[in-house]
Simulated assay, not measured.
Amino acid sequence: MHIVISGGTGLVGKALSKKLRTLGHSVSILTRNRENKQNESNLQYVEWLSDTKPEQELGNVDAIINLAGASISKRWTKAHKKRMLNSRIKATQECIRIMQNLPERPNVFISASAMGYYGISRTDTFTEESAPANSNFLQEVSERWEKEAKPAEDMGIRTVYARFGLILDSKEGALPKMMLPYKLGAGGPIGSGEQWYSWVHREDVVHFLIHALEHSGMEGAYNVTAPNPERMRDFGKELSRVLRRPHWLPAPAFAVRMALGEMSVLILEGQKVIPEKTKQSGYQFYYENLDHALGSLLRKK
């Protein structure tokens, strides 16, 4: 297959592109600047979100995977919140425009979303069929993100919304930031510790996306979260055990809010998200339990 990826140089995109190529697929990565990016075997870089028309370079496309969006792991200033929303909206709108102008429309469009779609709760359990419990910035971004992808359905393209959990990776994303206090001997409970942490190993994200590509019956929203979320206090205890560092020094909620501002919602609040429809699709998680996931990422680090 010829697969087009936006956000192909990010945390998930890099690993996904590499895996697809090892499986024999051709990959085109949409990029704002292809300077110093060399085309390789089964890999090309195509400029977009500028004055270019990427559809003229892409040729026949079997699938588009939309992963583009500004990081949520930076402080949420007013300007960055605007970037977080606008980057996702513009990228998704451009994917739709490209599909409308390709010689033949792709078979499938997979667009990233986030478990933030459900709002926050310490008591509710959310599956793909759940309505949002409440509204906040991340919930509004996720809902708008999916809405902008919906025109693909109207074009007759099989459309999958991948609602990512908190992706675990040893070098990028939230996990290295969470590890730092433990490495300094100052790790411990964050806030109440009761908040849910619906995590997923990066390898499972990559394999789920390939699973969605290959299974033509899949469409609509899917939770890309491990089947066994953890409360933050238990996540921290497991992290301390794997790192062989103490878990003792509490970080009060007010201190986290002062340090991180509005972004603290990622740590102090959460939601228990279960991948019910994802498992029904036949996907089998490589990492269902946190001890296995953290062990694979950190024991040799």
Rank of each mutant, 00 (worst) to 15 (best):
A70P: 05
R32F: 08
C95P: 05
E288N: 13
L249Y: 09
R144S: 13
L58W: 05
D124S: 13
H247Q: 15
E276A: 13
S6M: 05
L175P: 00
T92L: 06
L184D: 10
W48D: 00
L11Y: 04
E140N: 08
Y117G: 01
L49S: 07
F109P: 00
R244W: 14
S121A: 08
S216L: 12
A162Q: 02
K279C: 10
R105D: 01
P229M: 02
N86P: 07
R34K: 15
S281N: 10
W145M: 04
M1W: 07
N33P: 02
G217S: 15
A221K: 06
L239R: 05
A15M: 14
F109E: 00
E288K: 11
E194Y: 15
F285R: 03
V205A: 04
S192M: 06
S87L: 05
R233T: 15
D154V: 13
R88Q: 04
P246Y: 15
N228I: 09
L43R: 00
R245S: 08
E128R: 01
K19I: 09
R202D: 00
S240Y: 11
T92D: 07
Y182D: 05
V141E: 05
A133M: 08
A149K: 04
W145S: 02
D234F: 03
L16C: 02
N36T: 10
R245N: 07
P176K: 03
A149I: 10
R299P: 09
K272C: 10
G7N: 03
V141H: 02
K237C: 06
E203I: 15
G270A: 08
R97D: 07
I274T: 08
A251Q: 10
G236V: 04
L20Y: 01
H247D: 11
Y222D: 01
F208L: 13
A255V: 12
G116T: 07
Y197N: 04
E288L: 07
M84C: 07
S170L: 10
D169I: 03
P103M: 09
R83S: 14
A293K: 01
S73Q: 12
F164I: 11
K90T: 13
G185S: 11
L294I: 15
I64K: 00
T92K: 06
S28I: 02
P132R: 03
E276Y: 10
S26I: 12
E219S: 12
T31N: 11
L175S: 02
S264I: 06
G185C: 08
G236E: 02
Y283G: 00
K177H: 11
I5K: 02
S281E: 05
V256N: 05
E129M: 12
V206N: 01
P103I: 09
K300L: 08
V242W: 01
H247C: 13
G191F: 11
Q280G: 05
T22Y: 07
V27I: 10
Q139E: 12
H207G: 07
G8C: 04
P252C: 13
G156N: 14
L260R: 01
R144W: 08
V108N: 02
A253C: 11
Y118R: 00
K277I: 02
F164W: 07
R244Y: 14
G188H: 06
G8T: 03
Y182Q: 01
E276F: 12
G24W: 04
